[in-house]
Design a protein around this nucleic acid. Sequence first.
DNA 1: GTCCCGCTTG
DNA 2: CAAGCTGGAC
Length: 233
Amino acid sequence: MTGKPELRRELIGIHNKLLACYGVQHWWPGETPFEIMVGAILTQSAAWGNVEKAITNLKSAGKLSPSAIRDMPMVDLAKMVYPSGYYNAKARKLKALAEWLGKYKDDLSRLDRSPTVDLRQELLEIYGVGPETSDAILLYVFKRPVFVIDAYTRRLFRRLGVEPPVDNYDGWQALFMDNLPHEFELFAEYHALIVKHGKDICRKSPQCTECCLSNECSGKPSATKPVHLGGPT
DNA sequence: GTCCCGCTTG
DNA sequence: CAAGCTGGAC
């Protein structure tokens, strides 16, 4: 946490307003660590409701475990995750995740001994695990203080007029991690609140009249959409 | 930049 | 009917 005090207070202020608006979120939905990891992969560019269907399919078939997924034919796995979209790609990703866990005898406590940077590097080497999925797993499974950046985060804070100097994943992550205390509870709750807000209010087409942040928001990108002053040609 | 891809919402 | 959904691989 080395950033400017002004930005630090702004980021905390946004968190507090979201918390006051929505209350504690109790994330991540998922009853076991493995279920959280599966959810993190299946939710890539997919609505959570569809992810739940896929997870329910796995659960009711008794296949929601690393070993079951390793032993299952790819085609069967693809059918089960069908509702979450990209089913062939996601079946392959789940296989890769399960194979990786197998290297540690499916024992999360072994992995939990690794420092965060090392664990993150390992996660990134798994097929289908990129920065966001990696950080979601680090945060919600391993309880590491890592700030997760997603499309909702970028959209919300751009509209609020807060942007990092470098517009990529690491740049966004540094914006938050350089300006907030590295506390698991704070990062977990903040991300959950951003998602809640992004789904319900700060959508692509924002519901600004119902937004509890409308006072501090310029609504920039959507407000700057081209206006043809001369009217249609 | 393109592809992967079904389901929900407007 | 189209747009959008907690991305990542190539």
